[in-house]
Structure formats: C-alpha cells, structure tokens
Nucleic acid binder design. Sequence first.
DNA 1: ACAAAATGTAAAAAATATGTTATAATCGAG
DNA 2: CTCGATTATAACATATTTTTTACATTTTGT
Lengths: 77, 77
Amino acid sequence: MAGKDRYKFDSKIHVYRATRRMTQQELADLVGVSRQTIMQLERNRYNPSMLLAYSIAKVFDVTIEDLFDFKEEGKDA
Amino acid sequence: MAGKDRYKFDSKIHVYRATRRMTQQELADLVGVSRQTIMQLERNRYNPSMLLAYSIAKVFDVTIEDLFDFKEEGKDA
DNA sequence: ACAAAATGTAAAAAATATGTTATAATCGAG
DNA sequence: CTCGATTATAACATATTTTTTACATTTTGT
C-alpha cells in the first residue's frame, strides 16, 4: 500500500450515491461488501483495493478517476 | 476479498514498462514500493490498492483504466 | 560461452483493508 | 417530541496486500 504516498484522494461516493438516492446498504449490496466498508470509504478515506474501487465506479457508470478525486500530497483541490 | 468478485483484470504494466525501457526496479523506486510488488502485479495479478494503481498509472501518464484491462468474470478479452 | 543484469519463485513476517457486531448519533416523517 | 431509518464510531477478528530475504532462471551484451 505504498507507505509514504505521493498521492491522496477524496471519495465522491456519497455524491453519486445521493444523486441516485441510494443508501449505503444498497450500494454495499450491489458491490458485495459490508455497509461499513462503504461508510469508511466515504468517511475515513482509507485506500480501497483497485477492484473494489472499480466495482463501485461501475455501479455509477463512471471511471475510478471520476469517483475519486486524486491529488498530490500537500496540495489543495 | 478476491472471493466472489464480479470483475477481474489484466495488468499492462509490463507493456508500458517495456515501451519506456524501464526496469521493474526503476518503476518500483519511482512508485516507492518493492520490486516484488511490481513483479507480482505483472505476473500473479493480485489486487493492488487503488493508490498504488494510481501511482503507477501516473508514472506512465495514463489512467488506471488504461493500465489495467478490466473485464467481467467469465468473459474473455 | 561468459558475466552481468533483469526477471521469476517462494515463504514468512508486517501492514492494512475488510468483516462483524454492537452501540450511538443524526435526520426526516408523522 | 418520538419512531424508524440511515449513518457514524469503535473494538476485535479475519483476509489480503506488501515487504523482506534469499535463491533460481532467463535475458542481454560482449
């Protein structure tokens, strides 16, 4: 997981989820993970596996880069 | 959580790496992981963290979706 | 063919993601 | 305000990624 990471990111999952009026549980079920995993992804922003990120992106028909806002460490939006 | 995944993927890292005449070790250093991590990603195809995938994609100036060939389980290319 | 560099394999340890469960906080509807 | 649904927090257990080390094999240059 690349210890001293050059990049960080913000999840936009909650935005897409809100747009579709979808609950955390529903998204979790669609993707096949627990609700807590979705929750922590939206909140604590930990680093998901690529497949998980991709699966969620697919639910909303967007790319991983659309779903997560990548930026370099130490820079703002 | 590689259990009942809906998606799988093939890495194209070795292709991009070959294009740039870059060694596994060089790429590993650029990204800040061990050579084995790169090696296993190219070979055994395990599921990297999203940040790692992104970091590698950035080295080659492509998107994650460019660097990895996603497909649904049970389907061919 | 030889040497050096690059790649592959393997196993165990370390780090981190994910699951599980339980409980609390929040928010909207009535 | 109260109820139910949704979301948040936390502790602990499990699964998976990533590192480390060491050695085998392949490739490349000369």
